[in-house]
Design a protein around this nucleic acid. Structure first.
Length: 255
DNA sequence: AAAGAAACCAACCGCGAGGGT
DNA sequence: TACCCTCGCGGTTGGTTTCTT
């Protein structure tokens, strides 16, 4: 039965399902003789009853000698999260930044740990906040310190609360975009220093000056710590500034 | 100890891009 | 230009293992 169709059987003359040790040996022998590529020649030249596609997949995901075995490390996890935020589900692109890991492995890891449940989503948000925070505040860290930090559980912050502060003060915040991001609009004539000063300290000659105390003082409300690396002027739209929310910075402020 | 649920992972499928003819 | 072939990518499936009740 299993040999006639379906998983582990034969379809259209090709074997399917789990690979045997013997098949792996044949495929490795083929690659060592002919190199990678020309996958559709593999069955003819190696004697395998697998189609080229299946052979390529087996080699790329399992047999390649440079593959790293074992669990994804916290450091790798951080990279995955960061790159996923940037690239989305472009698994092969992400995999290029993780030597020894395959796109399939990363995809499976993501789906298992971050995709399936609400619980996972919350975990992801926390991890994202944490990674962003670490990047912005302490870019140079040794590995041990990083791993210790991964034990921390950064807390969620109510973004709406912060946004409402801006909106109440009519600061021209246009939207909260995907991810921990908000956007300000200032007059195009304002200098960079003026904008930064106003955003962080509520100082200067910008509109609504004096109505608020700047981002630094949101600390008092939500335990948010900003620095100037959190804010960037949009090169295409000079009156537009994007502030990346750096996350919650510690347990000392009650939530 | 057993059964069901959840997690994990290998492999398949369909599609699109790119190169050759 | 159109067609074909090969390859790579992302989504999905299904078997196995581990955990929970």
């Amino acid at each position: 039965m299993a040999e006639s169709f379906g998983w582990g059987g034969v379809k259209d003359g090709w074997r399917k399902g789990p690979w045997t040790a013997e098949e792996d040996k044949l495929l490795m022998a083929y690659v060592s003789m002919h190199g990678e590529g020309r996958w559709n020649s593999v069955p003819r030249l190696s004697g395998l009853r697998r189609n080229g596609k299946s052979c390529r997949l087996r080699w790329v995901n399992y047999l390649r000698p440079d593959l790293k075995r074992g669990q994804i490390t916290p450091h790798e996890e951080s990279i995955i999260i960061e790159l996923h935020a940037r690239w989305g589900n472009r698994w092969s692109t992400i995999a290029r930044s993780l030597p020894g890991r395959t796109d399939n492995e990363i995809k499976n890891y993501w789906r298992t740990h971050f995709k399936k449940s609400e619980k996972s989503s919350r975990r992801l948000e926390k991890r994202k906040n944490y990674v962003i925070k670490r990047q912005r505040q302490r870019p140079q860290k040794n590995k041990r310190e990083e791993e210790e930090e991964h034990q921390e559980q950064p807390q969620q912050v109510d973004m709406r609360k912060i946004m409402s502060q801006f909106e109440e003060n009519d600061y021209g915040v246009s939207s909260v975009q995907s991810g921990p991001e908000m956007v300000f609009f200032w007059p195009q004539t304002a200098s960079e220093d003026q904008c930064l000063s106003s955003i962080f300290n509520g100082e200067g000659s910008l509109p609504d000056d004096g109505l608020w105390d700047g981002l630094w003082n949101l600390d008092d409300v939500d335990g948010v710590a900003y620095d100037q690396t959190c804010v960037a002027r949009n090169t295409q739209e000079p009156n537009q500034w994007t502030c990346l929310y750096p996350g919650y910075l510690g347990p000392h402020i009650p939530m």
